[in-house]
């Protein structure tokens, strides 16, 4: 237990030293949220949502994506390529301790990033936060786990750091711009709106909005939850089949 705790603490410490991770988790989403907020805070979006109801969940979706792909998927490939895992296999440390530490890091990044957005919304913009904190927390956790499993695929299929980075960069554009996380989907041309269906983050944005606005347990959310659930199952299977520690 003590070993697991020390290892996890170190994993978290190393995370806070990654400049790129800090940038993508705590700077880019927060700055985007502020800038868009200054421009669009009086807009109304699809379903009658105001800026905060639509884009607090939106920006947190971005954090989920960057955490899963960069801080988890890519970082695992970097550590494996450096031989870190091989070295750890030579110690009594159990593999599931490494796994647990990585998951703990993912949750920490997302929860802290989310709290940062909430604080900005409340204290900078004076916006109302959700009356459904439990529903939102549930949605956030479910979406996070789903994306962890996609990050797990990245670290299973990419052998080299460059490959993992390439996958993350290529995935970034549709995830950022075709999911509704940043640009309102209804403002996009028809063809791009259709493409959004194939972008996993679209479902995260939808579910987080459902959680935030208290519609998580309604019929409208079933489809999104089912799609993410399916992704979770399939990704976990693929990841488990192809993942190698060394």
């Amino acid at each position: 237990m003590n070993t697991l705790l020390t290892h996890t603490k170190m994993e978290l410490k190393l995370f806070f030293r990654e400049t790129l991770a800090m940038l993508f988790t705590f700077i880019v989403p927060a700055v985007s949220f502020v800038v868009f907020g200054l421009m669009f805070k009086s807009n109304t979006y699809e379903g009658g949502l105001d800026y905060f109801q639509a884009y607090i969940p939106g920006m947190i979706s971005i954090i989920i994506f960057t955490t899963a792909f960069f801080s988890m998927g890519l970082q695992v490939v970097i550590d494996r390529e450096k031989g870190v895992y091989k070295r750890l296999m030579g110690t009594p440390l159990q593999q599931n301790a490494i796994f647990t530490a990585t998951i703990a890091k993912g949750f920490l990044a997302i929860y802290v990033g989310a709290i940062e957005i909430l604080l900005i919304a409340k204290f900078y913009f004076g916006a109302d936060l959700t009356p459904n904190p439990f529903e939102f927390f549930l949605a956030l956790t479910f979406c996070s786990v789903t994306f962890f499993s996609i990050g797990f695929i990245v670290s299973s299929l990419a052998k080299r750091m460059q490959t993992a980075l390439g996958i993350a960069m290529v995935a970034m554009y549709p995830m950022f711009f075709l999911s509704g996380a940043t640009l309102p989907l209804e403002s996009l041309p028809d063809i791009l709106q259709k493409m959004a269906v194939a972008v996993p983050l679209t479902y995260v944005v939808n579910i987080l909005r459902d959680g935030w606005n208290g519609t998580l347990f309604t019929a409208g959310a079933v489809m999104d939850i089912a799609v993410l659930g399916g992704i979770l199952v399939v990704s976990t299977l693929i990841g488990t089949k192809f993942f190698r520690w060394t």
């Binding site: 003590n2 170190m10 410490k13 990654e18 970097i78 450096k82 009594p92």
Partner: peptide
């Protein structure tokens, strides 16, 4: 290979590995 995390310090690596035993 040295096979260590990119951003770990000498002292931290020693304490980390020591904690495994």
């Amino acid at each position: 290979q040295t096979a260590l995390y990119d951003r770990i310090k000498v002292k931290e690596a020693l304490e980390l590995f020591s904690s495994y035993y």
